[in-house]
């Protein structure tokens, strides 16, 4: 954070007020985690706040030993990671195009993609399922023509659009693209055209310009767009619930969600330990990307 601080000396009292307000906000943000952390180390965890007795690591160990925790993590990383990469590449190109074009469709397009995101996911599930199933059948007959029958199933687990990695990757990417496009478009708006003109004078083609000049400059924007896409896809549970079935493909939110009523009584220790591990990657990613935010969003919206 390299913003200039005012040089006018501030009275100390103001700092005290600032501390007070910030402390209240921090307590509000932090307090719900107290129970989660305690319960995750508690052998007899309950829905209620209690001091762990006895302390245990079994809740964490159980995720990987009793359940397929490692597989859930692997699948979540594959699906959300791939979706994030698609979002980065597509929104990088698309955001640049939207920033530099003055075509008549620019504004209608921008508003359409952002406003269509108000449709809550439950309304999209059924139409999405039929589209993906149609595409899935096409993919399946293509794969069948290439591979021996015994390789069909493992192949479809990867490239299948229903109950396969690819389908969920595309769904996540599509859901996150509108916001990412907005972020990248507004970010490219802040990068002066001069840079490109210099390259243009040197005779660089559009793709050379993108690769050599704009890609390095776009990093902070991509960092911010990527982190929002990652966190939002990482936390989604409805789409994995509907589109994945095979045990090989189970992801973290499903592991967590299924644990709820799998047995009549909820295992709160297991659930909180899993919840902590589940949120950890998103927290870490946020920590890394924080420095990109200021640079990315300082432009706001410009004509």
């Amino acid at each position: 954070m390299n913003e200039t601080e005012p040089v006018v000396p501030r009275p100390r009292g103001r700092d005290a007020v600032a501390y007070a307000i910030l402390s209240l906000i921090s307590i509000y943000c932090a307090i719900p985690f107290v129970w989660l952390v305690l319960a995750s180390f508690d052998a007899n965890a309950a829905l209620f706040l209690r001091w762990p007795s006895p302390w245990t690591l079994n809740n964490y160990i159980g995720i990987f030993v009793r359940e397929g925790g490692a597989r859930w993590f692997f699948n979540s990383f594959v699906v959300v990671g791939a979706a994030t990469i698609i979002v980065l590449v597509f929104s990088g190109f698309g955001g640049y195009a939207l920033s530099r074009t003055n075509a008549w469709w620019k504004r209608p397009f921008l508003y359409t993609i952002i406003l269509v995101r108000v449709v809550p996911p439950p309304a999209l599930v059924v139409p999405l399922y039929s589209i993906l199933l149609t595409a899935n059948n096409a993919v399946a007959s293509f794969v069948r023509s290439l591979l021996a029958p015994e390789l069909m199933r493992p192949a479809m687990l990867v490239v299948g659009l229903i109950d396969g990695y690819l389908g969920l990757i595309l769904v996540f990417a599509a859901m996150q693209l509108p916001l990412a496009l907005w972020i990248m478009k507004t970010y490219f708006d802040t990068i002066p055209y001069d840079y490109e003109e210099a390259a243009l004078v040197d005779g660089a083609s559009l793709f050379q310009r993108l690769r050599l000049v704009l890609a390095p400059l776009a990093l902070p924007g991509l960092g911010a767009a990527g982190i929002f896409a990652f966190i939002s896809a990482w936390g989604d549970f409805l789409m994995p619930l509907i589109f994945l079935s095979s045990s090989e493909l189970q992801m973290l939110p499903l592991g967590l969600f299924r644990a709820f009523l799998r047995v009549q009584q909820i295992d709160y220790g297991f659930l909180s330990a899993l919840a902590i591990l589940y949120m950890l990657p998103a927290v870490i990613a946020f920590g890394f990307a924080r420095r990109y935010f200021v640079q990315t969003f300082s432009g706001g919206v410009k004509a």
Binding site: F90, F93, G94, A103, I113, A174, P178, L210
Partner: peptide, 23 residues
């Protein structure tokens, strides 16, 4: 520029806009 935007249009069109129209 249109070409650069095409992948986004296809993906968002197929999996976000089309389902919305289908509804």
């Amino acid at each position: 520029l249109q070409l650069l935007l095409l992948p986004c249009v296809l993906l968002v069109g197929a999996l976000v806009v089309y389902p919305a129209l289908y509804s």
